[in-house]
């Protein structure tokens, strides 16, 4: 019992356990839900959210908040599509350009927050409006992209046993592992955790919290732009009105995965788990068959609520 409690003390382990319960329950109800094919699809379908959520995780751990993720994602998507279609650029060059642009945009937001000491909520909310405006000014309509490289990317699959993972899934999983490693043992990761955990101590230690945070906003916007590229690869088109509300989903996924809104605590693996939970809920709804928009929302929200409530109850039980 005490070993169980010790295990449950770790938010990540707790999330895993609750998730496992959910999978077992759902697996018992729907045939074929727990299968390699479903898992493969889940990974590929949620890479966009997964990448965006990684950015949100970094910012939250550093004690900040980024609401511009969805808009930056849309702007990067439509921007890349336009560059490929109208500019005749190679997709990878286009992707590199928009990710660079995203990083610059994030750095600007970070500068406004840290140098002018404005609240992150307002600055990134302004960023949400501005980036969406930029996206709409690139192209109001959705823009379809057809390019041999993209077609090849869309068909490429890595087969591991029964799993078959596409390039987006690989990118997401790879980025997750990279972030997990960077958070745990790179100098930058340690700085981020220090700044988010105790900014005053970090300052006393001779770190520059403001600089670290600016870098974080740049990183977050970079991940959002990457998610926009993933959107183009996944759907074969860019759209200025895509990904609205993505920032809330990304933050929710990070929080479900054990990242604290107060800063200092969080993990990339936990965020991946949070994203997987959302993906899983969508899959369950798919298996349920023809649910209306209303029922889908009630199911998504209800399962999400059930998950966080159950975890909270367990957490309280552990603390006692």
């Amino acid at each position: 019992m005490s070993a169980l409690r010790e295990l449950a003390r770790k938010p990540l382990a707790l999330s895993c356990a609750v998730f496992a319960v959910l999978v077992v329950l759902a697996g018992a109800r729907y045939d074929g839900l727990v299968s390699a094919a479903v898992l493969s699809n889940l990974i590929e379908d949620n890479a966009e959210l997964g990448l965006a959520a990684l950015g949100a995780t970094w910012v939250l751990i550093g004690g900040g908040l980024d609401l511009s993720i969805g808009s930056v994602c849309a702007c990067a998507g439509i921007g890349a599509a336009k560059l490929i279609v109208a500019g005749g650029l190679d997709p990878f060059a286009a992707f590199a350009l928009v990710v660079g642009g995203g990083v610059a945009f994030g750095a600007l937001q970070g500068l406004a927050i840290e140098r002018l000491s404005l609240p992150p909520f307002l600055v990134t909310l302004a960023g949400l409006f501005v980036a969406r405006a930029a996206a709409l000014s690139i192209e109001l309509e959705s823009l379809a992209v057809s390019h041999p490289t993209l077609a090849a990317l869309g068909d490429a699959r890595l087969r591991v046993g029964e799993l078959s993972i596409g390039p987006l899934g690989l990118a997401w999983l790879g980025a997750t592992c990279l972030c997990a490693f960077a958070l745990a043992s790179s100098r930058f990761g340690r700085r981020v955790r220090a700044v988010g955990g105790n900014a005053r101590a970090a300052l006393h230690f001779g770190l520059a919290p403001a600089r670290v945070r600016i870098e974080l906003y740049a990183l977050s916007a970079g991940f959002a732009a990457l998610a926009g590229c993933a959107h183009v690869v996944y759907g074969g088109s860019g759209s200025a009105i895509a990904a609205s509300g993505l920032e809330l989903e990304a933050i929710a996924a990070a929080v479900v995965g054990g990242t604290s809104l107060a800063g200092g605590v969080g993990s990339a693996l936990g965020t991946a788990l949070g994203v997987a939970l959302f993906g899983f809920i969508q899959t369950v709804i798919l298996f349920e068959g023809t649910l209306g928009a209303g029922w889908t929302r009630v199911a998504v929200g209800g399962l999400f609520l059930g998950f966080v409530a159950l975890r909270k109850v367990l957490e309280t039980w552990v603390r006692r």
């Binding site: 809330l248 933050i251 929710a252 929080v255 479900v256 809104l261 209306g292 928009a293 209303g294 029922w295 889908t296 929302r297 009630v298 199911a299 998504v300 929200g301 209800g302 999400f304 609520l305 966080v308 409530a309 909270k312 109850v313 309280t316």
Partner: peptide, 30 residues
């Protein structure tokens, strides 16, 4: 959810934002 259960307000009300919108759509019958 926030007071008795102790959930973070942003998480609890995000969930109810989704559920309540769904409930509104159900009540309206599409």
């Amino acid at each position: 959810l926030v007071v008795a259960l102790g959930l973070a307000p942003i998480v609890a009300t995000l969930a109810s934002m989704i559920v309540v919108r769904g409930a509104a759509q159900l009540a309206a019958g599409g």
